[in-house]
């Protein structure tokens, strides 16, 4: 019953089987958070770290993350690398081609604010959030696979806080140093948060 212990649900045993009653928010969020299929593309050196994270040593698969080579089958866009002004309309188009619900992780300094090209750079978009909404920002140049995994855990945590019919919480920022991400204030509570009795 390991899994069942974690479900905020009421289980009723009837002749012929069991009935589970759970909040629909929880069911939808858990399904989404457990299978974030990400789109297969990379723009610069962050893509190398993304590939390393997807490979055997760090293993994205254990989070239920599998790369998809088409935006139609993708739930998550990991913008990995320097986004030039020439590339920006293409990335915006790819984001629009993804089906809702869709999520975006901005990986590395370039996608967060322009990175090393912020000064004296004429060809780089200074922050991918200028063209598409971003859920998680990961600092680093490039972020190590551990930081990317941390960002994906934060993405899962953010999905688990979704409420039906309500807007998403604010973006989560993953710091460059090691340590657990912090959920920004203003995020809705999760079903997993410790319940305060009384």
């Amino acid at each position: 019953m390991g899994l069942m212990d974690r479900i905020p649900a009421y289980v009723d045993r009837l002749p012929g089987g069991s009935v589970v009653m759970a909040p629909v928010d929880w069911a939808i969020n858990e399904v989404q958070a457990s299978s974030m299929w990400y789109m297969l593309f990379g723009l610069a050196c962050c893509a190398i770290e993304l590939m390393a994270t997807g490979a055997a040593r760090y293993d994205f698969d254990r989070l239920g993350m599998i790369f998809r080579a088409t935006p139609r089958q993708s739930d998550l866009m990991i913008v990995a690398g320097t986004l030039t002004l020439k590339m920006a309309p293409r990335v915006k188009l790819l984001h629009e081609q993804m089906a809702e619900p869709r999520y975006v992780i901005a990986m590395g300094g370039c996608t967060t604010y322009g990175g090393p090209f912020y000064h004296d750079g004429y060809s780089v978009l200074k922050g991918v959030d200028k063209i598409i909404p971003v859920d998680v920002f990961i600092a680093g140049c490039p972020p190590r696979p551990e930081a990317l995994l941390n960002g994906c855990l934060a993405m899962q945590e953010k999905i688990r806080r979704n409420k039906l019919g309500q807007p998403r919480g604010p973006a989560i920022h993953i710091p460059p140093t090691a340590g657990r991400f912090s959920i920004p204030s203003g995020s809705p509570p999760s079903e997993r948060d410790p319940q305060i009795p009384g």
Binding site: H119, D120, S123, K126
Partner: peptide
């Protein structure tokens, strides 16, 4: 070849400037 088709100017000229360009302090 490199820049978008509708780009104006030639960026590696030394007197080039662009609204997106923030000078390094």
């Amino acid at each position: 070849l490199m820049m978008p088709e509708d780009w104006e100017g030639h960026p590696l000229r030394k007197d080039y400037s662009h609204p997106n360009l923030t000078p390094r302090p």
